[in-house]
């Protein structure tokens, strides 16, 4: 049941309206960061306040909400946020990707292909893809206006020249609709291709940095790379110890202090589904 001391989904209606207007403009200008008046939330900055504000502004009583952190529904922060919305909005919650209409996430995109009825809400710590190269916001805003991404290209080129491969293992920047360079949030590069031409709407909320941006469904999203050094998403070269998957993104788990390791799916729902399918087949 919803907490009677708070408005539905915690935020007041004026705040929701402000965020909703920003969301519509974000969708109309794919990949462009829109400043918004992020509010203090009852969870600390950096813990998903941007994602929570976006979710609170779109969520309705007919929605089914899934919250993941690092791909898993049972991680503490995911549990905490799911409880929060259950408490302040009384909505149906689920761990099943297939059943969710809204999926709030930190650092992963589910393995199961998303559908047209779904909205992804990403928690974003640093929305500015250029911040490591140019920390001044006035300057990066100018570079985005000009579409001047030579800084990022030079950095990538230098990485390739030095390490033989380019780019970041996570948060690897993407070009959206051939116009804006965008941070996909700190998802592993493995997940970047899932943003491209996805049937689902992707919303990004950065609370502390007070920015909202979006990738509409069926939109071109290309990881920054060079023709002769194409972007290569990586995963640990193992099979999941629980479900046997050789295609899912894996967590490395240390089993002892003598170098023991095992690998299991980071997406807990996907792993459970695989295990169930395996049992049914037996």
């Amino acid at each position: 049941m919803t907490d009677p001391g708070y408005n539905f989904a915690y935020l007041d209606e004026a705040t929701k309206r402000m965020i909703r207007r920003a969301l519509l403009k974000a969708i109309a200008i794919p990949g462009h960061q829109i400043p918004f008046g992020a509010r203090e939330m009852p969870l600390p900055y950096g813990w998903g306040t941007g994602g929570i504000q976006v979710t609170a502004s779109i969520l309705g009583p007919d929605d089914t909400l899934k919250v993941i952190d690092q791909g898993a529904d049972d991680t503490t922060n995911a549990v905490s946020i799911r409880r929060f919305f259950h408490r302040v909005a009384g909505v149906q919650v689920t761990t099943r990707t297939a059943e969710a209409t809204i999926i709030q996430t930190r650092h992963r995109i589910p393995e199961r292909p998303l559908t047209e009825g779904q909205v992804m809400v990403f928690q974003v710590p640093m929305p500015e893809p250029l911040f490591k190269l140019e920390p001044r916001l006035a300057e990066t805003r100018r570079l985005h206006a000009l579409g001047d991404y030579s800084l990022a290209q030079v950095k990538l080129y230098e990485d390739i020249a030095r390490q033989g491969e380019g780019g970041s293992a996570y948060s690897h920047p993407v070009m959206v609709n051939h116009r804006y360079l965008m941070s996909p949030s700190p998802i592993p590069g493995f997940d970047n291709p899932k943003l491209h031409m996805s049937p689902a709407l992707m919303l990004f909320g950065a609370g502390r940095e007070k920015k909202i941006y979006a990738v509409p469904p069926y939109t071109s999203v290309v990881s920054l790379d060079f023709d002769d050094h194409p972007f290569r998403p990586v995963r640990a070269p193992h099979a999941c110890a629980a479900c046997g998957s050789t295609t899912s993104y894996l967590d490395e788990i240390v089993t002892d202090d003598r170098g023991g390791r095992m690998f299991v799916c980071s997406d807990t729902d996907h792993c459970a589904e695989n295990q169930m399918a395996r049992k049914a087949a037996e």
């Binding site: 009852p42 898993a72 503490t76 549990v79 967590d251 788990i253 240390v254």
Partner: peptide
């Protein structure tokens, strides 16, 4: 950095994951 490791994750007395209400 690791989901689990020897000795495990011990949350202990923490404000983390409390709702700031």
């Amino acid at each position: 950095t690791y989901k689990d490791m020897p000795g495990g994750q011990v949350l202990g007395p923490t404000f983390d994951y409390t709702h700031r209400l």
